[in-house]
Simulated assay, not measured.
Amino acid sequence: MADNLVALNAVGEIVFQVDPDPLVVRAQIAALKDHLLSLPGLHVEMPVEHTVQDGVYTRKLFIKKGTILVGKIHRKACVNIVAMGDISVVTETGYARVRAGHVQTSPAGLQKVGYAHEDTIFINVFRTDQIDIAAIEVEIACESHDELDGALPEHKETLCQ
């Protein structure tokens, strides 16, 4: 599926096959996103809670078990928190299966792909001076690496090490 980023293992579970070349993974993520968007009737809305307080924006996403999702590209670094559940996450810098209690930062420029093994709550925390959610979303995320400088993240402390 989508250039072999996503596969099934011997017992039929979703697994990720991550190429060592970050640019290959970036292309695979884009292909997966296009593939998923092309499938009629499979797109689902996920509940999102937004909180803005004193220059801190939190985005809390509920991901139902069995969901594959492709996030937007983050323009800014953020803190990632798995508040509940079990999720596999892929970025161009690697793969990790993380569970409730996992907290880690990721640099600007990354796009995440996830597969929820259990119902999962995933929280991103960003610094912002904005208070309007629409303005914050424009500030923190984009749909294409063409909207950035295209460089790979230099800083390797990512969700997936």
Rank of each mutant, 00 (worst) to 15 (best):
Asp3Met: 12
Val6Asn: 00
Ala7Trp: 00
Ala10His: 02
Glu13Leu: 12
Val15Asp: 06
Gln17Glu: 13
Val18Ser: 01
Asp19Asn: 11
Pro20Asp: 05
Asp21His: 03
Asp21Val: 10
Pro22Cys: 04
Pro22Ser: 04
Val24Gly: 02
Val25Glu: 04
Val25Asp: 02
Ala27Asn: 13
His35Tyr: 13
Leu37Ile: 06
Ser38Asp: 04
Leu39Arg: 14
Pro40Val: 04
Gly41Arg: 05
Leu42His: 02
Leu42Gln: 11
Met46Ile: 06
Val48Asp: 01
His50Tyr: 12
Val52Asn: 08
Asp54Cys: 02
Gly55Met: 03
Arg59Thr: 10
Lys60Arg: 14
Leu61Asp: 10
Phe62Val: 04
Phe62Thr: 09
Ile63His: 02
Ile63Gln: 09
Thr67Tyr: 00
Ile68His: 08
Leu69Pro: 00
Arg75Ala: 07
Val79Lys: 14
Val82Thr: 05
Met84His: 07
Gly85Lys: 08
Ile87His: 06
Val90Pro: 09
Val90Cys: 11
Thr91Ser: 15
Gly94Ile: 09
Arg97Thr: 12
Val98Ser: 02
Val103Tyr: 00
Ser106Val: 07
Pro107Phe: 00
Ala108His: 11
Gly109His: 09
Gly109Glu: 07
Gly109Gln: 07
Gly109Val: 03
Gln111Ile: 12
Lys112His: 15
Gly114Cys: 05
Tyr115Met: 04
Ala116Cys: 06
Ala116Ser: 13
Ile123Cys: 09
Phe126Gly: 08
Arg127Asn: 08
Asp129Pro: 01
Asp129Thr: 15
Gln130His: 13
Ile131Ser: 11
Ile133Met: 02
Ala134Lys: 10
Ala135Trp: 01
Ile140Ala: 00
Glu147Pro: 08
Leu148Arg: 07
Leu148Ser: 06
Ala151Asp: 14
Leu152His: 01
Leu152Arg: 06
Glu154Leu: 10
His155Ser: 05
His155Pro: 00
Cys160Gln: 00
Gln161Gly: 03
